[in-house]
């Protein structure tokens, strides 16, 4: 039971990880497409879950979770995330989110958090979010499956929250989208991850790259 509660604790947007500053390309996409109706929003989030979260973020998370006691191995995974995150706005966002999560857990005293934070601060590893999640969630006592579900939920919920803040959909419509995507997260969480990180999200990459140079922005990416 405590495993489920720990996953809920980490998926809760009240946890101070700094993720609220990022739209994961949604703000740029809304600008590119001059709006984004709820049905299109759902397609975009589902695509990001299937072809980015499940095949990239989840792979890094699981790798770091499995090797949480070996910081050299964690750093190898972290550098792989750096090399495979081709859009600068997503790289920067992922590192900043990772730093935020590590800072919170270091203060809480979660095992592994301070050690990884020290490596990041020394410049030995970039400290990407999925890698930080793998290490600190293992240290905090989350079970493997709970960690994967929390990670997937945060992605779906993060998109929906950003859509509300951007005025693309109302709060209730956004939650209807999240509800419809929960089975997708559950389905993907139960599949075997690819052996190596892979990602297919050209539309979000384009939107985020263009958005990164915009002068009027609500979100960092």
């Amino acid at each position: 039971m405590i495993g489920d509660l720990l996953a809920i604790w980490q998926a809760d947007t009240a946890f101070p990880s700094g993720a609220f500053a990022f739209s994961n390309g949604l703000e740029g996409l809304a600008a590119l497409e001059r709006g984004l109706p709820a049905d299109r929003l759902e397609v975009v989030i589902e695509g990001a879950l299937r072809r980015r979260w499940a095949t990239a973020d989840r792979v890094a998370l699981l790798g770091a979770y499995a090797r949480a006691g070996d910081m050299d191995a964690v750093a190898v995974i972290d550098r792989e995330v750096e090399a495979t995150t081709l859009c600068e706005a997503f790289r920067t966002g992922s590192r900043r989110n990772g730093a935020g999560l590590l800072a919170a857990h270091a203060r809480i005293g979660t095992p592994g958090a301070a050690a990884l934070q020290a490596l990041v601060r020394s410049g030995d590893t970039p400290g990407h979010l999925a890698v930080a999640q793998g290490v600190v969630w293992r240290g905090a006592g989350l079970e493997r499956d709970g960690a994967v579900l929390a990670s997937g939920y945060i992605v779906a919920s993060g998109f929906a929250t950003a859509a509300v803040r951007l005025g693309l959909v109302g709060a209730v419509a956004a939650q209807a989208v999240v509800r419809r995507l929960l089975p997708v997260v559950a389905e993907l969480a139960a599949t075997d991850p690819p052996e190596r990180i892979e990602s297919f999200a050209p539309l979000l990459d384009i939107a985020a790259a263009r958005h990164a140079r915009g002068e009027l922005r609500l979100f960092s990416n």
Binding site: E82, C87, L203, I206, A209
Partner: peptide
């Protein structure tokens, strides 16, 4: 539709 971004590790510029 195109988006250009600096690539990781100073490799250059990537265009989708």
């Amino acid at each position: 539709r195109a988006g250009a971004s600096p690539l990781p590790n100073g490799a250059g510029l990537g265009l989708r």
